[in-house]
Each structure stands twice: as C-alpha cells, then as structure tokens.
C-alpha cells in the first residue's frame, strides 16, 4: 500500500515536473522582450483595473490566481498565474507570452490594448511574494472600519449619480473611504452595461460622482435598473445597491406589426393589396358568370328567332 502510494506520488511529481520543463523549454522569449518593464505603477487603481480585465479575459482558462482552479486542459493545463514559479519571470516575459500566445493560449496582441495588459501584469505582481513589500506603497490609507455603507444620491435633472462609501472607525466615527473603485452598471437584457466612466474612484470624503449617459434608452417612463457596487469585493466584501432610477431616455418600443406591410401575414397585408386581390377575383368570376349566362341565353334566342 505504502509502495503504491509512493509510486503514485512519484509519477505525479514526474508528470508535474516534465510538464513544467516542457513549458519552460517550449516557450523562448527574445532577450530584448525580457528586458521590458511595466511602465505602470502598481497602484491600487491599476491593480483593481487589472483584476477587472483579468476576470474578463484570463479567468475562464487560468482560474483565480493562487487558487489553482484552472481549466483542466490536456496535454498542458493553463498555468496558475499567481504561482511563484510563474511570477519568477520578468514583466517583459509575461507581456511577450500574452502577446504571442502558444498552443491553446491565444495571442492577445491585438485583442487587448498594451495598457490593459500591463494592468493585468500589475495585478498578477500583487501576488508575487518577493515584490509584494515594495508594492504595498499603495495609496489606500483608509483606517480599519466596520459597518461599511454605500449611499446613493440620484440627481435626475442633470443625470448624475453620487455614491458615498463610508465606514465606522474604531473610535465610532463615520468616515469616507478613499480611493476605492466603484462600478455603476445598468441592467440590460443579457448583461450589465458599465456606465462608470473614466475615473470612478472615491475621493477623500468617500464620494464618487458619475455622469449618466444622456442618450441611453430606458423604458416607457425612462426608468432603468441600476446596480452600483464596489468593483473589487476584496476590500469590503460584496457591497452593492440596486435601484430603479429615471435617468434613461423614455423609449416607446416600436411594434413592426402595427403597420401593414408587404411582408406581413394575411392579417397585416396592405389595404391596396387586399382590394386589388379581391377586386381581381370578383372581376374574373363575374366575367365567367357573364359568359355562362350568355351561353344559357343562346338556346332561348335560337327559339325566339325560329
């Protein structure tokens, strides 16, 4: 029993190592590309926007960093991008690999902008134990708080929304939380439309104001379903607020069947077609009947002539 366990463990180790060797050997990165440095600082802003992009573009295969919940693909499963043996690589190396792709890994050279890719790398670096200390410079200087609240103020006149994020400090004072990214999402049929704009981060007093798009359609009354939340739930958990607001442009859905058209079914045919058709049928039948009656009259005519 012990032996079999050992064997299995050994096989597993061989498998793992051979996999990593193949990986390392099969993917050469030019020296010039390796030297590239991430031009963006590892601020909390950049890291959180990197996380957003990661969740959209990378997570479906690679899973969550450090969680090793990647898609089990054969023969080579996607790497855990939060693992230390992955983060040994330089920024430039990761950047190159994301750009070029290999095997099942797609090339993201043109699908993701360079800026976004660097954000993702900044996000991944935040899992790097060797560099983490350096990156803790992050600008969040928020005190430890409890009872975090998200308040929402809607100004319907100029279509703006103000979200206020605050928490209670240990001294019992309610303070605004600074530098936290918020998401302003509008519910649509198949997903949420992000209307947060360029800079949805809370200021010193915990406020963030966004301009709702002036031309976004709502329902008949202009109402839309809003979902406002803290983008990164790593800070204060899943904090969100749902609200129906009247900020959209009132839109009356047009029913194409209200109009009579050539393409309509029998019930929706244009009047002129119905009139022409019925008229035509009547005309033809009346001619036929006319002829028939004339023919019936013929023998009588012949008799009267006699």
């Amino acid at each position: 029993m012990k032996n079999t366990m050992k064997n299995i463990a050994a096989l597993f180790l061989i498998f793992v190592f051979s996999g990593s060797v193949v990986n390392a050997q099969g993917w050469t990165v030019p020296a010039s590309a390796k030297k590239k440095q991430n031009p963006y600082e590892a601020t909390s802003k950049n890291i959180s926007s990197g996380k957003k992009i990661y969740n959209i573009q990378c997570k479906s295969c690679h899973g969550d960093p450090t969680m090793a919940n990647m898609l089990p693909l054969a023969p080579v499963a996607p790497t855990d991008l939060g693992a230390q043996n992955f983060l040994i690589q330089s920024d430039g190396e990761i950047f190159y690999k994301v750009n070029k792709g290999q095997g099942a890994m797609p090339a993201f050279e043109k699908t993701i902008s360079d800026e976004d890719k660097w954000m993702v790398i900044a996000f991944l670096r935040s899992f790097d134990k060797n560099k983490k200390v350096k990156q803790q410079v992050a600008e969040v200087k928020n005190p430890e708080v409890t009872d975090v609240k998200l308040e929402l103020n809607v100004n319907e006149a100029d279509k703006t929304m103000l979200a206020k994020l605050s928490g209670v400090t240990k001294k019992g004072k309610r303070v605004g939380l600074q530098g936290i990214e918020m998401s302003f999402l509008v519910k649509r049929s198949f997903g949420y439309l992000d209307v947060s704009g360029e800079d949805p981060y809370t200021n010193e007093s915990g406020d963030v104001q966004i301009q709702f798009p002036k031309d976004l359609p709502g329902d008949r009354e202009g109402q839309v379903n809003m979902l406002v939340k803290v983008t990164d739930d790593a800070f204060y958990g899943n904090l969100e607020e749902k609200r129906v607001v009247t900020l959209g442009v009132p839109t009356d859905p047009v029913n194409p069947l209200d109009e009579r058209a050539m393409w309509g079914t029998r019930a929706n045919a244009p009047i002129w077609i119905i009139v022409t058709f019925v008229g035509g049928v009547l005309a033809i039948w009346s001619v036929i009947f006319l002829v028939l009656f004339q023919m019936i009259k013929l023998p009588k005519l012949a008799k009267s002539k006699d």
Partner: peptide, 10 residues
C-alpha cells in the same frame, strides 16, 4: 447579441 430598444449588446 442584444436588444436594440435598450441600445445594448452583450
């Protein structure tokens, strides 16, 4: 894919 009345596609 989406709803033109909502001016959004997913």
């Amino acid at each position: 894919f989406g709803d033109q009345n909502e001016d959004a596609v997913t």
